[in-house]
Design a protein around this nucleic acid. Structure first.
Length: 306
DNA sequence: TCACGTCAAGCAGAT
DNA sequence: ATCTGCTTGACGTGA
């Protein structure tokens, strides 16, 4: 077990990296203002994380509002070149792992041409964002396989066909995650065998939808899909919210349950994204547990880390 | 300051 | 037919 992370937002700092506005209020001025705020907040979060030894972070897809929408004609990479350089340098220098997770509207296996077109635009935006930070191939973009359309085999074939159409800047970063309704680890492996795409393991999805593999077995299967150039395998870890329906994420990390999980897989090498509602709070709880169990390496303090 | 209607985008399952 | 969840309710108008 290597790095601990949490997704998109931080509740301790008092800024938001995913502010937006509604489409009809779009203006260049507004776009530039919100985007700058988001990027500056991202930097603050990463600094907070480093101080706390949280070295894995998922950047919100909303960081650049309407980035893939036709209305956005601002060259944001150029406009924020300095900020991108500064943040990117900080990430690289401190060996922070980054991922992104485009939202549900990205459906690479869609039967609908315009859905596919929008999905590809969105994926290109994500890739360009990570490229602007000058991050290597270990920074990943994770998506689900998509819809079933009443024919899983055909839908998998369509995923592969459309994957092969993607530009290289997307392909090198794209990874797929098992989901809780449509595509299990086994289904993802089928796709891996065709195109070599790495698989992000999600434990809660696996609990809900699996083919009888236990968690450790499934993790090892997924981990084999990651090559050296992809970096350590990533997993999404979450716990069931006992008050809500199956698959809902817990409000905060249950230490006991987390310890049990860790004991099962502590010899494996991977980075872990905690999909728990209270974000950095649970990441800190998890780190504390890993330290107690003597699993995580001692924090590297780098005084001059900017 | 607060209530509440609305907000780019997909899909599947529940109601 | 409409609502809900998904990684995350937030934006914004009008009173």
């Amino acid at each position: 077990m290597n790095k601990i992370g949490y997704p998109c937002i931080n509740y301790s700092i008092g800024c938001k990296p995913d502010s937006s506005f509604i489409l009809r209020n779009y203006s260049k001025k507004r776009f530039l203002y919100v985007t700058r705020k988001n990027l500056e907040c991202l930097f603050k979060i990463l600094e907070f994380n480093l101080k706390n030894n949280i070295l894995f972070f998922r950047i919100s897809s909303d960081i650049i509002p309407f980035a893939s929408h036709p209305i956005c004609n601002v060259n944001w990479i150029k406009e924020f070149k300095d900020l991108f350089e500064e943040i990117g340098y900080f990430i690289r220098k401190n060996d922070i792992r980054i991922s992104m997770h485009p939202d549900q509207f990205v459906v690479l296996n869609s039967e609908n041409k315009s859905v596919l077109k929008n999905s590809i635009r969105e994926l290109i935006y994500h890739a360009e964002f990570l490229d602007a930070l000058n991050l290597d191939e270990k920074a990943k973009i994770q998506i689900h396989v998509g819809g079933l359309y009443d024919d899983k085999d055909l839908s998998i074939k369509r995923f592969i066909k459309n994957y092969n159409k993607l530009p290289e800047i997307v392909k090198r970063r794209l990874v797929i995650e098992n989901d809780e309704k449509n595509y299990s680890v086994k289904d993802c492996l089928k796709i891996y065998e065709e195109i070599g795409i790495p698989i992000v393991f999600d434990n809660l999805h696996h609990e809900v939808l699996n083919n009888g593999e236990d968690i450790r077995e499934a993790m090892i299967m997924c981990f084999k899909t990651w090559q050296e150039k992809d970096g350590l395998p990533m997993i999404d870890y979450s716990q069931q919210n006992k008050k809500k329906r199956r698959g809902s994420h817990a409000e905060t990390l249950d230490p006991k349950e987390f310890r049990l999980f860790v004991e099962k897989v502590k010899d494996l090498k991977f980075d872990i994204m905690l999909e728990i509602k209270d974000k950095e709070k649970s990441a800190l709880k998890a780190l504390k547990i890993l330290k107690e169990l003597n699993i995580i390496r001692k924090m590297k303090i780098n005084k001059n880390n900017r």
